[in-house]
Design a binder for these strands. Structure first.
Lengths: 219, 219, 219, 219
DNA sequence: AATGAATGAGTCTTCATTCAT
DNA sequence: AATGAATGAAGACTCATTCAT
């Protein structure tokens, strides 16, 4: 006779719609990944808004309900993609500069790693770019970007303190680096280069590092 | 009862649907401007996809017919906004460097003018950014971007030829400048700066010029 | 160049979704009525939840958009039906007792008018009944019911003050009257009478008045 | 891949889909009760249609399969709730008047018992009310109501035959009693009373008896 | 030039129900 | 007995666009 609700569905008043916290089986986790991967591709190719949930589930060949079993909404899925991607980018950069002592080399290797990641994950790079333009996702993207910038600032400040580079606003520098990286990877690796010569990911990474380091007039 | 979209009379040979070629009265031109201005604001604030034609005409307080009297589609309006904006940006930059002989100063003043334009037209800057992410508009935006880059390349090449700056790929440099400009104006003037100090348009422009010129290590 | 929004769509923060305030033409007003009438019938016959917006527009033979041109949601339409009906019921009762001096006769004629209204508007009666059971509409229905009870209480109190009827809680009496009216009109005029003899609206009205007046033991 | 609803093994000759006839263990019976109790609460609070099977099983913290192990459908569960409740109400009333000889007192005590039951089972009272408004359940509810009325009629007729109360249509009287009981318990015990004073279940029961007995004008 | 009305395919999302394990 | 996964029809609602007036 006792009515003991063991579990409330979703904490109400939650700012951003959270994922349905489910205990997933192996098969479930696989499905979830599959949805994320396929959706990433479609979002990158066709855009977030133009890609419908129906497109996604049809593309995978499952029923519509499957989507909502794993994600509470299309927006939540997208946010999830962004979060994962940002985490991965950060991890990649950290790994690349681990063990390097010279702050300037840390900066350079960080830039290179960032550029390579962008080159290797063109879909995710595009999603970042879109997310920045959409009211619903700016917030999500800024959290990661702030951390990203903070990471770079740390090394820039160290280099400045060590007298290795001129003393300029490190936050502005970090953003400059970000801008160059985005623009060049997009231009040379995304087919956006108007008449620009095709280049390999490594070449582009070198280019990014060089421009970030010297500007157009430096050295 | 069936709704069969009819082709509007278009300029022949025009690849994308063009505006209905109308001879507008003074009042008509004003209406058109009003639509463009209001739509620009809404597109920038809420996004292109989330903003419906109904939002636009309701916001102005006119009927739906008005919209389709001046534009053949929502896409056409957006394309028109982009085209006008790109033209305006270019004109602004050209005016800024007119009469300057030193190629390096031309570059710097061009950068400054570009950054100032972005700072003064934040809505349009956002629309550029979005347009790059949407399959339907990349083409439109690239035409202008290519010209924009070409302009910069011309001066960079001149500076290189004159031995005023090191000999590096001017196309890459031009793109780097673009990236820095976008990122910094966005960061410091669009509220996107995570903890970054607020700055005036002029300060930001100086910052952009400085970073583009020297990179993080130069000078 | 000026952007002058003449009219915002809907006051945001509005508790209940309000109707899209439109200037309707004669044809528009007719459509709206048609939708209300048809929906009333379907809601009464099949229930509010089981009746879909598609059912309604299909039944009338118009496109789905028509519905949302006139009503902002299915709920809003239903609320509108309730409001109109309650107003009509009240007007009917007021007209019926206008000019009667004796408070007891006012009560009796009010009851009779109420019962007749219910008998003549079985669909609306059913909707009232449903609305009381649905979280989303109780509030809407109670506003009217409170007024309805207040009206009755006024006359009951007058009769008590004049020593024409025993001094009992008039609010409780008013609710009792309501209960009898609902139950009997439903039973005898809605096909809900289990084995009960069919009766005319007038007969039922007499029955309601008689029972309300005397109870089972009185007189 | 196709989903073809299969007939669950039903008691043959059963008009509506009946519960799977299972021999339940002690634990099984408890689960079933738990489902019924929790569902009753949700149906009463949120409505039958708005409450999904998922809501119910999630609220209890079990899988979907559990639900369909004990009930063949959501409708069947609801019907079951109604049936049980009606049986319980009847039993309560019968017990209350057992051993009373005077038919008038039998009527009064029956009314009181009914009112008290409603007061003590507000959720079930609400479900009765809803069931009367939904095409799918009217039939189920009427069976019980008919019996309920028949019970009352029996005593009313006895009282009339004994000359203890005036000779009026006992069926109508019985329905009148029902209407008063529903309306007053709802008003005073369900928070539906617009400005009406809160009262205890016993007070309300007294009120109901008094009004049913005397009407508004009788002694 | 402009309006209110209308279209209907398409969007996101829900939900009763089934099934393999 | 019970679970997580899946189904897919159906629901409410949107929206670019067209049309009669």
């Amino acid at each position: 006779m006792s009515v003991v609700p063991r579990q409330t569905t979703n904490a109400p008043g939650d700012p951003a719609a959270a994922a349905p916290e489910r205990k997933l089986t192996a098969r479930g986790r696989e499905r979830r990944s599959q949805l994320i991967d396929y959706a990433t591709k479609r979002f990158a190719d066709d855009g977030f808004h133009p890609t419908s949930v129906a497109d996604i589930v049809d593309g995978i060949g499952v029923g519509k309900g499957v989507f909502y079993w794993y994600f509470s909404s299309k927006e939540e899925l997208f946010t999830e993609i962004l979060r994962t991607a940002q985490t991965d980018l950060r991890r990649t950069q950290r790994k690349a500069i681990g063990g390097i002592d010279d702050p300037v080399r840390r900066i350079e290797e960080g830039i290179r790693a960032g550029a390579l990641w962008m080159a290797n994950n063109p879909d995710l790079r595009r999603l970042f770019e879109f997310a920045r333009t959409d009211e619903s996702f700016v917030k999500a993207i800024r959290i990661g970007q702030r951390r990203h910038v903070a990471d770079a600032v740390e090394h820039l400040q160290a280099a400045i303190d060590a007298g290795l580079i001129p003393d300029r606003d490190p936050v502005a520098l970090a953003h400059g680096i970000l801008g160059v990286t985005n623009q060049l990877t997009m231009t040379y690796l995304d087919g956006a280069g108007g008449g620009a010569t095709k280049r390999s990911a490594e070449e582009v990474a070198d280019l990014v590092v060089s421009i970030c380091r010297n500007g157009f007039a430096g050295e």
